[in-house]
Every structure is written in structure tokens, then in C-alpha cells.
Computed example of a mutant assay.
Amino acid sequence: MVLNALLRPDEFFAERAPGLSLGRAAAVVFVVAVVSTAVVGAFGWTLSQRLTATTEIPNDERPPDWVCEDEADSEVEEMVQDGCDEPKQKTVVVGDLLWDAFSERLPLVFVGVLLAWPLYGVALHVGSALAGGSGSFTDTLAVAAWGMFPSALQAVVGFGLLYAALGGIDLAGSDPEMLASQIRSLTERAQGDTALLSLAGAVWQGYVWTFGLKRARDLSTGGAAFAGGGVAVVVFLLSLV
């Protein structure tokens, strides 16, 4: 079913529209959200494991200096000053800090994909209405969901490219300037690969959305391409920002 929707969308939607299953569409979006989140997490974890250098950061377990300046005259003050013998700075692995930052953002990736679904649906419905389309919003919403599937495949391929790029870069050094240079090199390489991959993903999305809208919104191929392709172009441009 999924392959038909991605590779033969005209045939797939012709057999099912109107009256597309919103439940199946929601399942597609859920899978896309899970895969996208897992890919971001996998990349963050892989990168963090390669960053073995250490750095000094403030020790959160030590009370502020103003608490530790005076001698304790009571049991209460002794309790407050508990931990003043801890060092002001502590040594941590850079990769651990990076993973903490990645892990905090993973829920945002998951929720972001879920929130993108109705936004795509609205954009496709408005665009197809301008092209003279007719039909229910739920069908448009289902089309929007199926067209999001290429983004999950795009994320997996993107992770593969970034993982391959990591193989040629040594991130185990302790020199901050060298690490910054290595990260900058990885970022520049990734930007070029990501742009091409995003373009391929946008073309694939536009392809699915075009024939989905053609069948679900009773449009000509040209009118559906105007709506579906237009939204795909906007999504691509936003991915470059």
C-alpha cells in the first residue's frame, strides 16, 4: 500500500478517493514522526559518542559563593552550606553536553511533525480550492499525510550521508579550535548534501500531493500540480532557511 502511494499515487488515490481513510493517514503521520525523531536522536547520539574531549563548566552541586563565604553559626546554615567543599568547576565530556541538548529537543521534533500535518492540509486545501477543486477537507488532510512519507525516507538517507561524513572526521581531539574547525567542515559538507536531498524529497512530495489532489479534489493534473507542487516548493524553500 505504502509503495503504491509513493510510486503510483495516481492509481492509488483513484482507487480510494473520495472517502480516504483518515485513520490510515494519521498512522502514516505517526510513523513519519517516530522515524524523524529516531533519526535525529541517532545522529545526536552518534556525534556525541565521537566528541570525547572534556571541558570545564560551573558545578551546579556547589552553592553560590555568597552562601559559602561566611562560617556557619547554626545547624540551618550548615545545611545551607552543605556542598561548599565541592569545586566551583567540574570536568565533563563535550559529547555528554551535546547529547543532553539533543535529547531535550527530540520531543519538539516529534510534536513538530504532528503539527505540520494540519498545516500542510490547510495549505493544500486552499491551493486546490484556488485551482477550482472540490471535495472534503478530510480527504485533503489524508492526501497531505501520504505526501509526508518521503520526508521520513529523506531523513533516513540524510542520516546515512552524515554518518558517512563523520567517518572521515576526527572529533576526539581536545583542542577547541581544531574541534570547531572539524565541526565547521562537517556542517559545510552536510549543507550541500542536505540541500540536494531536500530538493529530491520536495519533488517526491509534490508528485504524491499532485495526484492525491487530482483524485481527492477532482482537479486536472495541471491544477493539482499547481496546488501540490506549489506547497512542495514552499516546504523546500523553508527547509533551506
Rank of each mutant, 00 (worst) to 15 (best):
S151G: 05
F211S: 07
P9N: 09
K214C: 11
L119Q: 06
F236I: 06
A224D: 12
D170L: 07
A155Q: 00
L119T: 10
A142I: 02
R16P: 09
V235Q: 15
A200H: 05
G112P: 01
H125M: 11
F236W: 10
D100P: 08
V122H: 00
G41R: 01
S103I: 06
V157R: 02
A232Q: 03
Y207K: 03
F30H: 04
W66F: 15
G167C: 05
G41Y: 02
S36V: 02
P58E: 04
F137H: 10
G167S: 05
L130K: 07
W66Q: 13
P107R: 00
S36I: 00
V93I: 15
V233E: 11
E71P: 04
R105S: 09
F43G: 04
D65T: 11
F137W: 09
K90L: 15
A227S: 13
P176E: 00
L124I: 02
G19C: 05
W99Y: 14
A195L: 14
V157I: 08
V122D: 01
R16K: 13
G230E: 12
V235E: 15
S74F: 07
L186V: 04
L166K: 02
S136M: 07
M79K: 10
D73M: 12
L141H: 03
E69G: 02
Q182P: 07
P9M: 09
S174L: 00
G173T: 09
P118R: 02
A180L: 07
D170R: 04
V80K: 10
F137K: 08
V94G: 12
S174Q: 05
G112Y: 03
L47N: 03
T138K: 13
L213W: 10
S48L: 01
L97G: 09
V28E: 03
E177F: 06
L106V: 02
S239F: 03
V34T: 01
C84A: 09
A25Q: 07
D82T: 14
R105H: 09
S48V: 04
V32I: 03
V76D: 13
F110P: 05
A5R: 08
A145K: 08
L97E: 08
R8F: 14
V241F: 13
A165R: 10
S36K: 00
L141P: 00
D70E: 12
V92T: 13
V122T: 05
L237H: 05
W209D: 13
K214S: 10
P58M: 00
V126F: 07
A131C: 01
A33G: 08
S198L: 08
E77L: 11
L115M: 05
D175S: 02
G147D: 04
R105C: 06
S181R: 15
F12W: 14
G127A: 12
E77H: 06
G19P: 06
F226P: 10
D218N: 15
D96F: 08
E71Y: 08
V80G: 09
G206H: 11
D60H: 14
E177D: 12
E61P: 07
E188A: 13
A72V: 03
T46F: 05
R50M: 09
A42V: 00
S21F: 07
D85E: 14
G127C: 00
A17Q: 09
M1I: 11
V94D: 15
V126D: 01
V208P: 11
V208N: 11
R189Q: 14
D10S: 15
E86R: 15
L162M: 12
A26P: 00
T194D: 14
R217M: 13
N59G: 02
I183E: 08
W99S: 10
L3K: 13
